[in-house]
């Protein structure tokens, strides 16, 4: 039964992935559609980041936001993506371990 579920999940995941390979070869898209498709990665990035980022530590959504802020800051310097990834992990880890947010709450901020 589990095997059937896995195969079923595989089929409905893979078919939508490869159908466009057939479409793109057959149809010549008008220019506006190429522009549309070229913007898809940026729109996808937006939708993948938010609001999902608030669920990194579900009970403390602000940690995700702060980790994201660290990533934005680091990325601004034009360094490799990997530094943004590491910086964000360190930020979330420190904030999650040392309860800096609780401290803010304690101070009434």
């Amino acid at each position: 039964m589990i095997l059937a579920i896995i195969v079923g999940m595989s089929i409905v995941t893979i078919v939508p992935r490869f159908i466009p390979a057939f479409i793109v070869g057959k149809v010549k898209f008008p220019n506006w559609m190429n522009r549309w498709l070229n913007a898809v990665p940026y729109a996808a990035l937006g939708a993948l980041i938010f609001p999902g980022i608030m669920n990194v530590i579900p009970e403390r959504p602000w940690l995700g936001i702060l980790g994201g802020a660290a990533a934005i800051l680091i990325s601004f310097f034009g360094v490799n993506v990997i530094f943004a990834v590491i910086g964000a992990i360190v930020t979330v880890y420190l904030l999650n371990t040392y309860n800096v947010l609780d401290l803010f709450q304690f101070l009434g901020v």
Partner: peptide, 18 residues
Amino acid sequence: QSMGIALYAMFIGLLVPS
């Protein structure tokens, strides 16, 4: 748990230079 931020940070790191 903290490493759950990794892919989001990567998405951000891809977006910001663009």
